Structures are given as structure tokens and as C-alpha cells.
Lab assay of single mutants.
Amino acid sequence: KKYKIKVYVKDKKTKKWKKIKEIEVDTKEEALEAIKKLPPNYEVKIVP
């Protein structure tokens, strides 16, 4: 079972969220580790 991490950042001009990358991992633990490495201003969604 794979997890997709969708990473969004808020556009300063439009104030809208835009997706900047998608990370695919195998476990939820890996997903949480990957999220920890991202800057705090990123919004993250984990999709099972």
C-alpha cells in the first residue's frame, strides 16, 4: 500500500494554495518522516 504526500505552498500574490510536489512512500512512518523535513510554511496532505 502506497501513500502519496501532496505538498502545497501558499502563493503570496494570489493567496491560493498551489501544489508544488508529490512524494510517494510505502509506509505511514515514512510519510511522517518526510513531512518533518519540509519547511513549516508548507501545507501537506497524506493520501492513502
Rank of each mutant, 00 (worst) to 15 (best):
L38G: 01
K15H: 14
K12I: 11
V7W: 04
K45R: 14
I35A: 15
N41Y: 07
Y42M: 07
D11H: 06
K1T: 14
W17D: 00
V25W: 04
K1H: 14
L38K: 02
D26H: 12
I23F: 13
D11T: 05
K36D: 06
L32K: 10
E22V: 12
N41A: 10
K1S: 15
A34C: 09
A34F: 15
V9Q: 09
V9P: 00
V9I: 14
K19R: 05
P40G: 09
E30N: 04
Y42F: 12
W17Y: 12
T27L: 02
K6I: 15
K6H: 15
K18Q: 09
W17V: 02
K16S: 05
Y3A: 01
I35V: 12
V7T: 01
K4D: 01
I20M: 06
I46D: 01
K21D: 13
Y3D: 01
W17T: 02
K2M: 09
K12F: 10
I35N: 00
K37S: 13
T27H: 03
I20D: 02
K37W: 05
E33M: 07
V9F: 06
Y3C: 05
V7Q: 00
Y8K: 00
V25A: 08
V25F: 14
T14L: 06
E33V: 08
K6M: 15
K12L: 14
K1M: 13
K15A: 08
K15I: 02
P40R: 06
V9C: 01
V47R: 07
E43Q: 15
Y42C: 13
K21I: 10
L38D: 00
K2N: 12
I20H: 05
N41F: 12
V25R: 03
N41R: 11
K16Q: 07
N41K: 11
K6E: 14
K19I: 09
K45H: 07
K19S: 03
K36Q: 12
K28V: 11
K6A: 09
P40F: 06
P40S: 10
K36F: 04
V9A: 13
K19Q: 07
V44R: 01
K2C: 08
K28W: 14
E24K: 06
Y42T: 13
K2W: 08
D11K: 04
I23R: 02
A34K: 09
K2H: 14
Y3R: 01
K16M: 07
K13V: 14
K15Q: 15
K10C: 10
K6D: 09
I46V: 14
I5P: 00
I35F: 04
D26G: 09
D11M: 06
P48N: 10
Y3V: 05
V9D: 04
N41Q: 11
D26Y: 08
N41E: 15
V47W: 10
K18F: 06
V7A: 03
K13F: 13
V7H: 00
K4H: 08
I5L: 11
P48R: 11
D26N: 15
E43V: 15
E33Q: 13
P48G: 12
I23D: 02
L32P: 00
K21W: 06
Y42A: 09
W17F: 07
I20W: 08
I5C: 04
K10M: 09
I35D: 00
E22R: 00
A31S: 03
L32E: 09
Y3K: 00
V7K: 00
K10A: 05
Y3E: 00
P48L: 15
E33I: 08
P48V: 13
P39Y: 06
A34G: 02
T14R: 08
V47A: 05
E22F: 03
L32Y: 13
K15W: 02
I23G: 01
I35Y: 03
E22C: 02
E33W: 03
K6F: 14
E43N: 15
V7E: 00
V47M: 08
A34N: 05
V9N: 05
D11A: 06
K10R: 14
A34W: 11
I20E: 03
Y8R: 00
T27F: 04
E43M: 14
I35K: 04
V7P: 00
K1D: 10
E43A: 15
K6V: 14
T27V: 02
A31T: 04
P40M: 05
W17E: 01
K12R: 09
T14W: 04
L38F: 14
K15V: 02
E33R: 07
K2L: 11
K2Q: 14
P40Q: 12
E24W: 12
W17H: 03
K2G: 10
L38M: 14
K12Q: 13
K37M: 10
Y3T: 02
P48T: 15
K10I: 13
V47I: 13
V7I: 09
K19Y: 12
K36G: 10
I5S: 00
E24M: 13
P48E: 10
E24F: 15
K45S: 11
K21P: 01
K13I: 14
L38R: 01
K10F: 11
E24G: 14
K12D: 11
P39K: 08
K36C: 15
I35C: 03
I20K: 07
E30F: 03
V44S: 06
E33D: 12
I5M: 06
K36A: 04
E24L: 14
K16F: 05
I23P: 00
K15P: 02
L32V: 12
Y3P: 00
I35T: 05
K4G: 02
K6Q: 11
D26S: 11
K36L: 11
E29T: 07
T27N: 07
K6T: 12
K10Q: 13
K18A: 03
I20P: 00
K12N: 13
K16P: 00
E33Y: 04
V47T: 12
K21T: 14
I5N: 00
K45I: 10
V44W: 12
I46F: 09
V9M: 10
I5G: 00
Y3Q: 01
I20T: 03
V25D: 00
L32Q: 14
P39W: 04
E33T: 11
E43D: 07
Y8Q: 00
K6P: 01
V25E: 01
W17L: 04
K15N: 13
I20C: 03
K18P: 00
K28R: 11
K18N: 06
T27A: 02
T27Q: 01
K37G: 10
K10V: 10
K15M: 09
I46G: 01
E29A: 14
D26M: 07
A34Q: 13
N41V: 10
K19E: 08
Y3N: 01
K16N: 05
K4L: 12
K45N: 07
K6S: 13
A31M: 11
K10E: 07
K13T: 13
W17R: 03
K4T: 14
K45G: 05
K19D: 01
K6N: 12
P48Q: 14
V44Y: 13
E29C: 13
K28F: 15
K15C: 06
K45C: 07
E30K: 06
A31G: 05
K36I: 06
E33G: 06
K15T: 05
A31L: 11
P39A: 06
D11Q: 05
D11L: 04
D11Y: 05
E43R: 15
D11E: 05
E22L: 04
K28E: 14
E30T: 03
E33P: 01
K13Y: 14
K1A: 12
K1L: 14
E43P: 07
P48H: 12
T27K: 02
I46K: 01
K6Y: 10
E29G: 06
E22A: 02
I46R: 01
K16A: 07
V9H: 07
N41H: 15
K21H: 11
K16T: 06
K4Y: 12
K2P: 08
E24R: 06
N41S: 13
L38T: 01
V7Y: 04
A31P: 00
Y8W: 04
P40H: 11
Y8A: 00
K36P: 03
K1F: 15
I35R: 04
V47P: 02
A34H: 11
I5W: 05
E30P: 00
K45W: 08
Y8H: 01
K13S: 11
K36V: 06
I5E: 00
K12P: 14
Y8M: 02
K1I: 14
L32S: 07
I35W: 03
A31W: 04
K18H: 07
D11S: 09
K28Y: 14
N41I: 09
K15L: 08
K45T: 08
E29Y: 09
K15F: 05
K28A: 09
E29R: 07
P48I: 15
E22Q: 05
V7F: 07
A31I: 14
K16W: 04
K18D: 02
E29F: 10
K2I: 08
E24Y: 13
V7R: 00
V25M: 10
E29H: 10
K21Y: 14
I23V: 05
K37L: 12
T14K: 11
K12G: 11
I23C: 04
E22W: 03
E30Y: 02
I20R: 04
K12M: 08
E43S: 13
E24N: 12
T14F: 04
L38P: 01
K18S: 05
V7L: 08
E30G: 06
K10H: 10
K10D: 01
W17M: 04
K15R: 11
K19V: 14
Y3W: 13
K13H: 10
K16E: 06
K37N: 10
V25L: 06
K2Y: 10
E24S: 10
E22N: 02
P40V: 10
W17C: 03
K18M: 09
E43L: 10
A31N: 00
I46N: 01
P39R: 06
I23A: 02
I35S: 05
I23W: 15
V47D: 06
T27P: 00
K13P: 05
K36H: 11
K12E: 15
V25C: 07
E30A: 09
D26I: 06
V9R: 15
P39F: 06
K4I: 13
K36N: 11
Y8I: 01
E30Q: 13
K13D: 08
L38W: 12
K4S: 13
I46W: 13
T14Q: 05
T14I: 03
K13Q: 11
Y3I: 08
I20V: 14
V25H: 03
A31K: 01
V25T: 08
Y8L: 02
A34T: 13
K21N: 12
K21E: 09
E43K: 15
V44F: 14
